[in-house]
């Protein structure tokens, strides 16, 4: 029981306020309470350790399932590997991306930006629903 609610009940017990007034005060108190506690309980916030990719398919009536779990640490290490790619290889990759209609400059991608991206992956969930396939990407 919080302090303000206890004060209201004390005043009611001492006859300083009526039962209706106490009810109104408690109702007003509840309106002012932030709903933060409820939302935090709904999704426990912990440090995600793995990236999960789950694919459920149905091909020719046969169910198929791909379930991959990759440590996020591996993604971080992979991001550092990307920083080792020589500039001439990045230039070639840029040219190929442009040819494919993806005008993306890989040389502008900095390792620290990728690190930040990996750090925030735990807040990401991707779900794709198709009649014959279901894909889920999330962190746990």
């Amino acid at each position: 029981m919080n302090e303000q609610r206890k004060d209201i009940l004390d005043m009611l017990a001492e006859g300083k306020i009526t039962a209706e007034e106490a009810e109104q005060l408690i109702a007003a108190l509840e309106r002012d309470q932030p709903p933060a506690a409820a939302s935090l309980d709904a999704r426990p916030k912990g440090k995600a350790k793995y990236l999960r990719v789950v694919v459920d398919t149905l091909e020719n009536g046969e169910p198929g399932r791909v379930n991959v779990r990759v440590p996020l640490q591996l993604l971080r290490a992979g991001v550092r590997l990307a920083a080792l790619i020589p500039p001439q290889a990045l230039g070639k990759a840029n040219a190929e991306l442009n040819k494919s209609g993806v005008p993306f400059d890989l040389t502008q991608l900095k390792p620290e930006q990728l690190e930040t991206l990996v750090e925030h992956l735990d807040e990401m969930t991707v779900e794709v629903d198709q009649p014959d396939a279901k894909v889920r990407v999330f962190c746990e």
Binding site: P63, G64, A83
Partner: peptide, 17 residues
């Protein structure tokens, strides 16, 4: 970087059905 990748491998799991 290579060593970091190798040492980050434990915990990896690939399951295909």
């Amino acid at each position: 970087t290579g060593w970091r990748i190798v040492s980050a491998l434990p915990g990896t799991r690939v399951d295909v059905e």
